[in-house]
Design a protein around this nucleic acid. Structure first.
Length: 647
RNA sequence: GCCUUUGUAGCUCAGGGGUAGAGCACUUCCUUGGUAAGGAAGAGGUCAGGGGUUCAAUUCCCCUCAAAGGCUCCA
C-alpha cells in the first residue's frame, strides 16, 4: 500500500504506508531534511517524526515559517525547563508556550529566588543539553498514569492541567531526562537549537488569576544560528533607542515630576506646541465633517456617573469622589466625556432634523490606573481625548460610522502611520454579565460595526471580550518600536447610554424616538498618540508637525543679522525656524541640529549673506545646495501640503 | 495592586562604612570658523525620602516614594 502526499506546489508523491514527514523531506533533499522543524499535515502542525496518517497534503515547516518558529520555541521552552530542573532540583512547572518573540516558562521555585545573574548558567546548561541531540519523544499516556507520574514528582500545577483533560487525549514529550505534559508538536531533536538567551524574569499569576499563586515567568528566545541571536539583540537595542520616554526627554517634549505625581505628564513648550498642532489639525478636519465644539468641566456630580453606569462599573477602582465642605455633595473627576455630552444633548428637545448632532471636545479625563501599569505617555492617569459623540437616527448609524472611519484613515495617512490593523472588539461570548444593555441592541451595534469595516475594506481582526461595557468598538491598533500593539483611534456604537439618559428626538411621525450614539476618538488619547508617533518615526516627525522645521546656522556671529532676516521672512511664510546663536563652529552646529532631528539646516556665511540665499542641508540627507529663502519656503510648504492631503 | 530589578550632578554612568568622581550639558573667557564634537577656566550633589544598626551610613538593614521589565487591569 502506498500513500499519496500532495506538496504545496501541487505535486503528488507516493510513499510507503507509515512514512513520516521527515522521510518525505529526505526524499527531496538532505539539506531540507536538516532544516525541517515540523510538518503541516492537512492543515494541522505535527511532529516531523510522526507517521503520516494516509493520503494527505503536506507542508514541511522550517525556521522560515511562523509555525516552524513557534514549534522550535515551544521545544526550546522544554529545553529551558530541562536546564532549570537540572540546576534547581524540585522546581515545579506551570505552562511554557511559544510567544511572538521566543517563549516563556512559568515555574515555582519554592523559596528560591532567581535573578538575571543566574541567566548565564541557565543559558550554558541549555547549550550543553541541546548539544546532546536529544530526540523529542512523544508518548500517549492514560490519565491515571499521567496523574501517577506528576503526583510522584509533586507538581500540583501539571496535575491541575491534567485534571482538565480527557483520558485518551493526554500525551507526554520527553527529551533527555525531562518529561513534560504536552500536546506538542515538537521539533525532531534538540540539535536545531544553536543559540539560547534567557531574556527576563517576571511574576505571573498561575492561570492569569490574581487571587492565585504568583509563579516566576522566565522569558527566553532561541535561534538556529548564533548570528541570528546577535541580530535579534541588536534589534532590541535599536528599538530601545526609539523609546518615547528616552526621546521625549532628549527632544524636550515632556517630563514627569514626583511631586506632581506618577502618571501625570507635564508637557514642555516643544511638546505642547506639537500637541497643539495635532489639535489644530483635528479641529480643521472635524469642522469639515460637521462637528461642533463643546466644552465641559473636569468634574461632574456622582449622580451623572450613576446614571451612565460608570459608577457601578468602575466606582470602586476609581479616584475617590471630591466632596464639598458643607453640603456633602460628591463630584468625580471625569473619567469620560460622554455623560457630560449626553446632558448637552438633553438640554433641549431635539428634532430628527437636528440629527446627526456631532459634539466634539478635546476633553481631559482622569482615570485611576494601578501603579504598576503606568508607562511613559502610553498609560497615564490624566490624558486628553480628541473625543466626540455623534447622536444620530438609527438609519444614519452606518453612514456616520463610515465617515468616522474615513477621518481615522486621514489621520493615519497624514501622520504616516502605515502599519496598522483594525480590531473589531466584540463581547465576551462566555460572560455577558460584564456588559449593560439588551441583547437586541448589542446585536444591532455589533453588526453595524462588522458591516462598516467590511464595506471599507479594512484589514480587520475580530477580538471577543474586548468591547467596552456599553458597546462594541472598532479599534485602530498601531505597533510601537518594540512591536507592542497600542490602541489609538477608536469608534464605538452605543445604544445603551441614550437609554440610560433617556435621550429622545421627535421623528417625522411626530413620535418620540431614541437616538443612537457613536463615541469616537481618532487619536484616542493625545498622550498615547504622541508616544506612538515618537516611536514610529524615531523622533523624526512629519514636516508639518515637527516642533522646529528649520534651524539657521551662521558660519560666524558676523552673520547673525542675516540669519535673523531669513527667520523673519520664513515666519511670514508660516515656517517654524530659529537661529543657533551659539559661539560654535559650523560643524558643531550641524552635528547638534542633526541629533535634534531638525528637518532642515540653513547655513549662512559670507557668500549667502551677500547673495541673500541660504545653503540648505536636509536631516539625514545632506547638502541640497543654495536657494533663496522664498524658494526654500515654497519647497517646505509644498511638502507640508502633500502630507496633509489637502487639509 | 503583585513579582523581580533599579534610584549617586540637568543627562549617561563609575565608586564605595571615615561626609563624593568622569564624560556630556551649563556659565565665563579665548577663538570668528564652510557641512556631524575648537580650547581653557568655573560652577553644580542632604548620594530619592524617612527610620534603624554603628564612634561614624551615600555605602549595611527596614519602610515609603518613583522608575524599568512582566502579571492582573484598562470606561
Amino acid at each position: 500500500m502506498k500513500i499519496d502526499v500532495t506538496l504545496p506546489d501541487g505535486s503528488v508523491r507516493q510513499y510507503e504506508q507509515g512514512a513520516t514527514a521527515m522521510d518525505v523531506a529526505r526524499s527531496i533533499s538532505e539539506g531540507l531534511a536538516r532544516n525541517v522543524l515540523a510538518a503541516k499535515v492537512d492543515g494541522e502542525v505535527r511532529d516531523a517524526h510522526r507517521p503520516l496518517p494516509g493520503n494527505c497534503t503536506l507542508q514541511l515547516l522550517t525556521w522560515n515559517d511562523p509555525e516552524g518558529k513557534a514549534t522550535m520555541w515551544h521545544s526550546s521552552a522544554h529545553l529551558m525547563a530541562e536546564a532549570l530542573e537540572s540546576l534547581y532540583p524540585g522546581v515545579k512547572f506551570g505552562i511554557g508556550p511559544p510567544i511572538e518573540h521566543g517563549f516563556y516558562y512559568d515555574v515555582d521555585l519554592g523559596d528560591r529566588v532567581i535573578t538575571d545573574k543566574d541567566f548565564p548558567a541557565i543559558e550554558a546548561r541549555m547549550k550543553e543539553l541541546a548539544a546532546k541531540k536529544n530526540v523529542y519523544v512523544r508518548t500517549e499516556v492514560s490519565k491515571p498514569d499521567a496523574i501517577k507520574y506528576f503526583t510522584g514528582k509533586g507538581d500540583e500545577y501539571k496535575l491541575e492541567l491534567i485534571d482538565g483533560l480527557n483520558d485518551g487525549e493526554i500525551t507526554f514529550y520527553r527529551q533527555g531526562d525531562f518529561v513534560d505534559l504536552c500536546r506538542g508538536p515538537h521539533i525532531p531533536d534538540t540539535s536545531a537549537i544553536k543559540a539560547s538567551k534567557v531574556l527576563s524574569i517576571a511574576g505571573a499569576y498561575w492561570r492569569g488569576d490574581e487571587t492565585r499563586k504568583q509563579l516566576t515567568r522566565i522569558y527566553g528566545i532561541t535561534f538556529p544560528k548564533q548570528k541570528e541571536l546577535e541580530e535579534f539583540l541588536t534589534m532590541i537595542e535599536e528599538a530601545k533607542k526609539r523609546d518615547h520616554r528616552k526621546l521625549g526627554k532628549e527632544l524636550d517634549l515632556f517630563t514627569f515630576s514626583e511631586k506632581v505625581g506618577a502618571g501625570l505628564p507635564l508637557w514642555l513648550p516643544k511638546g505642547a506646541a506639537l500637541r497643539q498642532r495635532l489639535i489644530d489639525f483635528m479641529k480643521a478636519a472635524q469642522e469639515k465633517d460637521g462637528y461642533v465644539p463643546v466644552i465641559t468641566p473636569h468634574i461632574g456630580g456622582k449622580q451623572l456617573y450613576i446614571t451612565s453606569g460608570h459608577w457601578e462599573k468602575y466606582g470602586k477602582d476609581s479616584f475617590r469622589p471630591i466632596t464639598t465642605p458643607h453640603e456633602g455633595e460628591e463630584f468625580l473627576l471625569k473619567p469620560m466625556n460622554c455623560p457630560h455630552h449626553c446632558e448637552i444633548y438633553a438640554s433641549r428637545p431635539r428634532s430628527y432634523k437636528d440629527l446627526p448632532l456631532r459634539l466634539a471636545e478635546f476633553g481631559t479625563v482622569y482615570r485611576y490606573e494601578q501603579s504598576g501599569e503606568l508607562h511613559g505617555l502610553t498609560r497615564v492617569r490624566g490624558f486628553t481625548q480628541d473625543d466626540a459623540h455623534l447622536f444620530c437616527r438609527p438609519d444614519q448609524v452606518k453612514e456616520e460610522f463610515m465617515k468616522v472611519i474615513d477621518l481615522v484613515l486621514k489621520v493615519i495617512k497624514a501622520l504616516e502611520l502605515n502599519d496598522f490593523e483594525a480590531q473589531v472588539s466584540l463581547r465576551d461570548k462566555a460572560d455577558r454579565s460584564k456588559y449593560i444593555g439588551s441583547e437586541e441592541n448589542w446585536e444591532k451595534a455589533e453588526q453595524a460595526i462588522i458591516d462598516a469595516a467590511k464595506e471599507k475594506g479594512l484589514p480587520t481582526q475580530v477580538e471577543y471580550g474586548e468591547a467596552a461595557f456599553y458597546g462594541p468598538k472598532l479599534d485602530f491598533m498601531i505597533k510601537d518600536a518594540l512591536g507592542r500593539k497600542w490602541q489609538l483611534g477608536t469608534i464605538q456604537v452605543d445604544y445603551n447610554l441614550p437609554e440610560r439618559f433617556e435621550l429622545e428626538y421627535v421623528g417625522s411621525d411626530n413620535q418620540k424616538h431614541r437616538p443612537v450614539m457613536i463615541h469616537r476618538a481618532p487619536f484616542g488619547s493625545l498622550e498615547r498618540f504622541v508616544a506612538v508617533l515618537i516611536e514610529h518615526h524615531a523622533g523624526r516627525f512629519p514636516l508639518w508637525l515637527t516642533p522646529e522645521q528649520a534651524l539657521l546656522l551662521p558660519i560666524s556671529d558676523k552673520y547673525l543679522g542675516a540669519c535673523a532676516n531669513v527667520v523673519r521672512s520664513l515666519k511670514d511664510s508660516d515656517i517654524r525656524a530659529s537661529v543657533d546663536e551659539r559661539n560654535e563652529k559650523i560643524g558643531r552646529k550641524i552635528r547638534d541640529a542633526e541629533l535634534a532631528r531638525v528637518p532642515f539646516m540653513l547655513v549662512v556665511g559670507e557668500k549667502e549673506a551677500e547673495q541673500g540665499t541660504v545653503s540648505v542641508r536636509e536631516h539625514g540627507q545632506g547638502d541640497l545646495g543654495t536657494m533663496t529663502p522664498a524658494a526654500f519656503a515654497e519647497m517646505v510648504n509644498d511638502r507640508v501640503r502633500e502630507q496633509l492631503g489637502g487639509l
